[in-house]
Amino acid sequence: MHRSRVYAVIIDAPIEEAARAAEFWSAALGVPARPLSDQPQFASLRGAVPGLVTAVQAVDDAPGIHIDIESDDPDAETSRLLALGAEQIGRWLECRILRVPGGHVVCVLPVESDPELFDAQATTWP
């Protein structure tokens, strides 16, 4: 058994447009865009989507939006999603990067949120 929950909505912007995208989303959503000191490719949009981390990420890829799923067992969650039709297309640090049916990207990572929040909102999977 393992548990997982949607953790973040990430707006992917090509590197050369990421700063402008962060400014746009900050103004559009009415929240400040703040670079993360430990991960400068991200600009946090804290409070944009209540209960979820929201950020603009500078990527060396096409623009898009992806979802991060946190799990107390990322290997089990990745296996579960692969069985549902996802394909693992990469890995970055502890994050497993999947392409799901329809072409969207989903990242599976270890629990990042407050343990009480995770316990309250996570779904338990067999």
Results as ranks from 00 to 15, higher is better:
26 S>A: 15
3 R>M: 06
91 R>K: 13
23 E>P: 02
98 L>V: 12
1 M>P: 15
124 T>Y: 04
115 P>G: 10
54 T>Q: 03
87 E>A: 11
51 G>S: 12
43 A>N: 07
64 G>K: 01
100 V>F: 06
20 R>C: 04
10 I>E: 01
114 D>N: 11
115 P>Q: 07
29 L>K: 07
5 R>W: 02
33 A>L: 03
107 C>Q: 02
100 V>N: 04
21 A>S: 10
125 W>I: 04
91 R>H: 11
48 A>N: 01
44 S>C: 06
13 A>I: 02
77 E>N: 08
50 P>T: 14
50 P>S: 13
31 V>W: 02
90 G>R: 09
68 D>Q: 10
109 L>Y: 02
77 E>T: 14
38 D>H: 13
11 I>P: 00
94 E>Y: 11
3 R>K: 15
61 D>Y: 02
63 P>D: 04
32 P>E: 06
53 V>T: 14
97 I>Q: 05
123 T>P: 12
68 D>V: 03
60 D>Q: 10
15 I>W: 10
35 P>R: 15
60 D>A: 05
4 S>Y: 15
93 L>V: 13
26 S>C: 09
63 P>E: 06
95 C>R: 14
74 P>H: 09
103 G>E: 08
5 R>D: 01
110 P>E: 04
51 G>C: 12
4 S>D: 11
32 P>N: 04
76 A>N: 04
22 A>V: 09
94 E>P: 15
73 D>M: 10
91 R>A: 05
112 E>I: 09
102 G>C: 08
83 A>Q: 14
19 A>W: 06
27 A>C: 10
10 I>H: 02
101 P>H: 10
13 A>N: 01
